[in-house]
């Protein structure tokens, strides 16, 4: 008994070490580009392109950040672009939460005629990739003079089917007794939503908020289509122009990337739980 036990333990030990080795090798591949961004943003360009890459900055070389913020043409549009991205992403996040939760409430706790049809129609929109409808949307935006406006950037993303699905799944598990009790107390349907459903759906809302905010912070295609003026550029467009400029250098490219990632990185470190739950929503099975 004892030798077999020992042998098994040894095999387990070896397998364990191998597991950690494989996982760590991948970890290096995953983390190296990010460490590269972080360290290169504090290096002058000549250090970044020296071979082999030094990995540790020789000092706190801040010039890259000055250049990233000032821009290649010293117009300081970085702040403006940051602000634009913030306005658009926050507005879309808020509207998605409001509309998706309201619709999710409707589709989970009411039984009006045609409810299942409504749900199916909304789910069907998941099949329409934005890239397939962006050209008509751009044509209409131009006709309505929505190009270079916040409205033009925000309107096509006010809510999305996935958000509605997520909120509906969450509300289905919400006990009916609370809602019925509130009805007996004479609360209106809307105040039930506002005072009972919303305050009790923190995790779902946090998950949806993070997903929505990240998607918008990442959005390149739509701003590319409806923004031409420098002052209305979002951060993604700013980075694209800044790094594409002949006068930009490696260090300031990494510095601007780092600066642009700060909001998401802060969210990731403070709310990592909801990033994971957001990914896991899909794999949740019914039954």
């Amino acid at each position: 008994m004892a030798p077999a036990f020992l042998k098994e333990k040894a095999i387990h030990g070896a397998v364990g070490v191998l597991t950690y080795l494989i996982l760590s090798a991948l970890l290096v591949f995953i983390l190296a580009p990010m460490v590269f961004m972080l360290t290169a943003s504090f290096m002058p360009a000549r250090d970044i392109i020296s071979m082999p890459y030094p990995w540790v900055p020789k000092g706190w070389y801040g010039h890259n950040f000055v250049k990233a913020i000032a821009g290649n043409d010293r117009t300081y549009l970085f702040f403006r672009s940051f602000w634009n991205s913030m306005v658009v992403a926050v507005a879309i996040t808020i509207s998605t939460i409001m509309i998706a939760s309201l619709t999710g409430y409707s589709l989970s706790k009411f039984s009006f005629r045609g409810r299942d049809l409504v749900f199916m129609i909304i789910m069907a929109t998941m099949m329409i990739p934005f890239e397939a409808i962006m050209i008509p949307l751009q044509v209409v935006s131009t006709q309505l003079k929505l190009t270079n406006t916040y409205a033009g950037l925000i309107l096509p993303f006010l809510v999305d089917a996935f958000g509605i699905f997520l909120m509906r799944q969450y509300f289905i598990t919400f006990p009916d007794e609370f809602i019925d009790a509130a009805r007996v107390d004479g609360m209106t349907e809307f105040s039930i939503y506002r005072k009972i459903l919303l305050p009790n759906s923190g995790p779902a809302i946090a998950t949806l908020a993070i997903l929505t905010f990240r998607n918008q912070w990442d959005n390149l295609m739509w701003p590319l289509l409806v923004v031409q003026s420098e002052r209305m550029k979002t951060l993604t467009l700013y980075i694209m122009k800044f790094t594409g400029d002949i006068n930009s250098d490696e260090g300031s490219q990494m510095a601007v990337s780092l600066l642009a990632s700060i909001p998401m990185v802060l969210m990731f470190f403070s709310l990592s739980k909801y990033f994971i739950s957001g990914s896991a929503v899909f794999s949740a099975r019914k039954g």
Binding site: L26, P33, M34, F36, M37, I239, Q253, M254, A260, S279
Partner: peptide, 29 residues
């Protein structure tokens, strides 16, 4: 490990592309 593997998803695609453009530079990583 899960969080570390997930972490690149935090960066926007534009940032990811910018980083990797430098990595694929002739003198890059």
């Amino acid at each position: 490990f899960q969080l570390a593997y997930y972490s690149p998803a935090v960066l926007s695609s534009v940032v990811a592309a910018t980083i990797w453009l430098l990595i694929f530079d002739p003198r890059g990583l």
